[in-house]
Each structure stands twice: as C-alpha cells, then as structure tokens.
Design a protein around this nucleic acid. Structure first.
Lengths: 336, 336
DNA sequence: TTGAAAGCGGTACCAT
DNA sequence: ATGGTACCGCTTTCAA
C-alpha cells in the first residue's frame, strides 16, 4: 500500500498538519521537526496523492489536448511540444484524438471536465463554439493551437495561415506558374480556409483566378483522398502545373498520384505542402512546404493556458506566428 | 461553478446518498424519485467529479503510456491504438515521452503514481527493472507494449522480434544477397537485440556470418545517425549489398545515404525496415519492411491491463504476435 | 510553533 | 426505499 500523510505524521510523531506544512513549504515549522519529517517521508517513500490534493481545490496538474489524430505526424509534433512544456511545469498531458468527429469531441470535452483538468488545449479544426464557450464559462482555461474558433472569444496560438497561403502562391507565381490548383481539408477547417484565401488573394493580385473546381477538399484519409483528388485535377484538359496542398499529407497524395500517372515532379508539376512535418524530408522529391513553428507554438499555448489560471484576462489573447517557406525539391520553374 | 452532488440533492429534495445511488445504478430507488433526480441532474448539467470518485478508492479512469517519443510515427500509432481502446472503456491516456532518458522515465513514473493512474503501459526500451517492479509491488497494473523487460516478470504484448529478424534475413537471402549489414538502435533496446539475433541466426543457417563491424548502432536522431552509419557501411571495400534496419527511421537514413552517394536502391542496395510506419509508403522507393500489428497490440495491452485490475494473475502474461513481411520496392534480387 | 477540525465531492454501510 | 454519516488523503483556518 502507498504511504499516506497519516503514516508520515504517525512515524514522525507529529500532526498531519505539520507534514502538510513541510510539503508545501508553508507555515512555521522548527528546522528540527521539518528535517525529521522530511527524513520520514523519504524513508516511507511518501509522495502526496494528486487526487487528494486536487479535491481540496488545488490543481490537478493535468492538461488535455484535443487533436484530430495523434498518429498524424503534424499533431504528434504539436503534442510533443505541448507535452514537453507542460512537463516542464510539472503537468502531464491527456491526449484526445477526435477524428474531427463531433460526438468524440463532445465526449472528450466532457471527460476532461469531469477530470477537472487545469486546462484544455484544442487543436481540432471542427468544434462547436457553444460547447467550447460553455467550458470557458465554467472557468476552465481553454486555448486553441494551430486552429482558431471562428468568432469565438478564445485564446489562440496560430500561425498566420493567410500569409502562408500567400507565400505558397507567390513562390509558385515566381516560378512562372499560372494554372494553379488547391487540395484542401474539409471545408469546415478554418486554417485551410484561411490558407486558400491567402493563396487566392495573391493570385488575384497577379491578375489570376482560382475557380472553385480547381479547389478540391478531402476528408478522412488525407493521403488517399488527396491522391484521388489530385488525379482528378490532372485529368482536366487544361491541367494545372502546380498544386498547393493545405497540408503535407495531401501533398504526399498528390505526389503519389503524379508518380502513378507518369507526371514528373517538379518538371511537369510543382507541389507545395504545409506543416513541414517529418514526411517532407522523406519523400522523393523532398517536399517544398510552409513550415509552422510547432515547438514555439506548443510553448506558447502552455504558458498561455497556465497563465490564465491565475489572472482572469479580459480579452482573448491571439498570438499569430509567422510561417516560413521551406523550398525543397518538389517545386521548379515552369517548363516552357 | 460546477454543480456537485449536493446541489442535485438539494434541488431534488433528496439526500446525496439517493443521488449517488442513481449515479451508480445501485441500491433501491423508487422509479419516481430516480426519474426526478435524473431530471435535476440534466437540468444542472451535473457530471460527477472523477477526482472525488477516485478518492473514495475507485478508478481514476486514466492510463499512462510511456514511449520514447510521441512524435516518432511508430509510437504515435501505438498511442493511437492504446488511446482508442482505452477510450472505448471510458479511460483517458496520459502521454509520456521519455527520450529513453532514465531521469525522465523516473519522473514520469513517479508522476503517474501520484496521479493514481489505473495502469501504466510501457513502450520505452530502456527502463530500470527495479523501478518497474517497485511499481508493480504497489499493485499498480503495469504492462509492456512492443518492448520487453528482460528478465522482469511483467506482462507484455510484443511482436515476435526474433521471427521478424529471421524474416528479414530470409527475404534478403532469397533474393541472393550474402553480404548483409545491420543498422540497429541503441544496444540496450531489447527489441533491436532480438531482431538482430533472429537475423543472425537465419544467416548462420545459410552458412553466413554477421561480423560485429557490420552492425552499427544509432542513438538519438535515428534518421541522421542511420544515414551516417549507412554511409560508413557503404564505404567499406567489400560493401554490403543489403541492409536490415531495426526500424523504419534508420531505413530512411540508409535510403538517404544511398541517394547521396549515388547508390541505387534497390538495384545496388536492398533495404529492409521494421515497423511499417506511414513513412514506408512515402519514401521513394517505398520501403520493404516488417510490420507490427499496432492496432491489435494496443487493444491487447489495454484489455490486459484493465483485466489485471480485478484479478491478480499469478504469472505474467506474455502475448507474442506475428510480424509480417511487407515487400515494397526497396529490395530486389542481387544483380550479378 | 503546533494540532484539532472543517471541508473538498463522492461512496457505502447502517439505521430507520 | 431512504437518509445519516463515517471515511478517502490532503489543505487550511483557527485555537491553544
């Protein structure tokens, strides 16, 4: 059996209050008693129970992280960053893969509340605003990472998706491409929407248009669907010479479609991804992509959410980081 | 503020005992009172606090998972499998990336105990046996996944690493290769050791030897170090014609080294990986690898560890699953 | 300084 | 059937 504060108190011949004092470094304890108590704690290998502590109204030292799928490399990286920063502050991380499924989101959110986590970090694209706000109302700190709640007054640490979209377009435009297409995630995913908006605006400024039929959305299995959608794009009479993919998975699908169809990348087709996951360095050719500073984002959300606990900030904090174009080998000048 | 059982009791004009009854579906309650209580619970949006429940000696409905690094695709997949099965049973998952660092392992293990998790699943290669057994002694269920505690009497769900190593060797031997080399993880990682042993035994049966200098170990950054070690192997006068890599990350490193050195895969060099992560489908050529049934493994450990709670099994359960050779494009017959 | 005691939000036993 | 109450392990007044 695990030792409790009572065991320590008894062994040390003091009250549990005294033990509690030394655990928390509060109150006044004579150096001698304190030393003795510490000795006993070590001898009994005593570690205070977090659940008992939590019940008295203190922290649970647990954070919840909602992501679409932890086995998606991008979110795995986000999770690692969040985990590390949390661990740095003594917190542990509960992972919740939602598959962007409303029901799963609801169940997980409810679960996290019942566990009285000290904060919930949301990286899932599709969430019900009311649900989230009902959580905030219960004064549980909530923050978004890599995603934003449209119209919601929720803290968020995101990358400038719009700027990222522009970057991708500019890069492609600079390379001489004009027939551009887009592979996007589900239409409800705000980050994809923003990326496309930036991409389109940049095109517009160059006097180009991005018709809707050249923007294809994919849902569950991003690589597979991306591949299928890319293949479809390639079959158009006036085939696009470059595709901007709203994430690396989609880009890989495009890459595979091209390979299967005998379309050379980047000679015949340029591809730009988004996220700069480990996958981009593994493909052949390696993927040009827009990088998100995942580690920094992880650090920032955690600090943000942990800070929220203390002071009740009035306005939602919205931290926008700059994306970065990473040029690798999947993009090239348009061949004449 | 969140509603408590007292609020519900007051609103419903009953005792908290009655409310507790309906929550747990126990005891005797007249249908009418029960209905009324349920109504009140819904109106107040009442959800019992897990920490309070846990303090009374029940489950915390939390599982801990130790892995080297959640951003490593293989472990991300394992985590997803474990998470799903846990969620299925109403449990949530705390992720602990240890970096195979003893100190981190210790800290996390201690943390998980303080949180009174209902079970700890260990997928980290390097762990101190005494530490683990001290946990088991506290009657916290522990099980290993994809790794084994050498000599420890701990439940484990693993793949037959030895057989996997043999498979890889047989495949390469069948293709006519005889000059084989190995890229392995840190020498303390038991799974790698077993894979190499199987690989070597199969070679021996074919009358071949695997000298130690053809087995190179890598530590932290597996892709980078794998690349470096592979390059080294390729510089030997009598260069190996095939490399067995103890995981896909190492195989990717080998692939990149080959590409950089102008060595064609699979024409000049065959490469076999291990784990069948998403990465294998993304490389070019796609990687031949030995697959582990991650989903099944996840299901089994969770059921195993949840089962352990109830009955105190006498002997450690050791479930060994069969690996599977997935032939893709990184292996080919030895060119004459 | 030190310790007795009242919670925190439930569970479960025991009277009623 | 129903409710009173003693815990679970710890924090935090408040007296002594």
């Amino acid at each position: 059996m695990k030792a409790t504060i009572y065991d320590v108190a008894r062994e040390a011949g003091v009250s549990i209050a005294a033990v509690s004092q030394v655990i928390n470094g509060k109150g006044k304890i004579s150096g001698e008693r304190r030393a003795e108590i510490i000795r006993v704690m070590e001898r009994l290998n005593y570690k205070p129970s977090f659940i008992a502590t939590a019940l008295t109204g203190k922290n649970t030292f647990t954070l919840g992280l909602l992501v679409p799928d932890i086995s998606n490399p991008f979110f795995a990286e986000i999770a690692r960053a969040v985990e590390d920063r949390g661990h740095h502050h003594g917190y542990s991380l509960v992972i919740c893969s939602t598959d962007n499924d409303d029901e799963r989101v609801g169940r997980y959110l409810s679960l996290l509340q019942q566990k009285s986590v000290d904060g919930i970090i949301i990286g899932t694209g599709i969430v019900d605003r009311e649900l989230v706000e009902s959580i905030v109302a219960k004064s549980i700190p909530v923050a978004m990472i890599a995603r934003e709640l449209p119209g919601g007054r929720i803290d968020a640490v995101i990358v400038d998706d719009y700027a990222g979209g522009r970057m991708a377009a500019r890069h492609l435009l600079d390379l001489g491409h004009s027939r551009l297409a887009v592979l996007s995630e589900h239409r409800k995913v705000t980050s994809s929407l923003e990326r496309i908006r930036g991409f389109r605006d940049q095109m517009t400024e160059a006097g180009l248009e991005l018709p809707e039929y050249l923007v294809k959305a994919s849902g569950r299995d991003l690589i597979q669907e991306g591949k299928r959608n890319a293949a479809e794009l390639m079959r158009y009479a006036e085939r696009p010479t470059a595709i901007f993919c709203c994430n690396d998975l989609l880009a890989i699908g495009a890459l595979q479609a091209a390979k299967e169809m005998g379309v050379r990348v980047p000679a015949d087709l340029s591809i730009v991804g988004f996220d700069n996951t480990i996958l981009t360095t593994v493909t052949d050719p390696q993927l040009t992509t827009i990088a998100q500073p995942t580690e920094q984002m992880g650090n920032l959300v955690v600090d943000l959410i942990l800070g929220k606990q203390k002071v009740q900030q009035p306005d939602p904090v919205r931290t926008v980081l700059e994306p970065e174009l990473i040029v690798r080998q999947s993009t090239a000048e348009l061949q004449a």
